[in-house]
């Protein structure tokens, strides 16, 4: 005969397990994200409408270059009603990726970095290019 309270205890255990799983999942994700450091450089430094070169340096926590990643950049205006512009970044040196992007309008741009690591895990970061001047 099942003892009194077993059903409740089982539910609590299940809930704890679920919490542990979720906590573990979140910590794994954040650890993975924290391990990757991305710095960026935009040329020209005072960009105008048109072509800009964006260089990304991707390293792990111990500052070792992270090679073999796939990086796609997505540029969005701060105002709605615009389509994003996309560019693929190519690895030009170990851990150094470069993309050419066409900024189609003056103003503030938000650049999303979609990064796929060699192990298949995916990360997303963003940075801003403020005050792009008219051509």
């Amino acid at each position: 005969m099942p003892q009194k309270g077993t059903k409740g205890t089982n539910r609590v255990s299940l809930l704890c397990l679920l919490c542990l799983f979720v906590a573990g999942f979140i910590s794994c994700r954040s650890q993975s994200s924290a391990e990757v450091i991305i710095t960026h450089e935009v040329l020209p430094q005072s960009p105008r409408v048109g072509h800009v070169a964006i260089t990304l340096r991707v390293t792990n926590a111990s500052r070792k270059p992270l090679m073999g990643a796939r990086i796609k950049l997505e540029g969005n205006m701060s105002h709605p009603g615009m389509s994003p512009v996309f560019a693929d970044a190519l690895e030009v040196a170990p851990g150094e990726y470069r993309a050419n992007m066409e900024l189609s309008m003056a103003g503030d741009w938000v650049i999303l970095v979609h990064l796929t690591l060699p192990d298949g895990s995916k990360l997303e970061r963003q940075f801003e290019i403020k005050g792009v001047a008219p051509a």
């Binding site: 409408v49 701060s78 309008m105 503030d108 403020k130 005050g131 008219p134």
Partner: peptide, 9 residues
């Protein structure tokens, strides 16, 4: 004028 989407610098 060219429309800017838009920054305050």
């Amino acid at each position: 004028q060219s429309m800017e989407m838009r920054a305050v610098v």
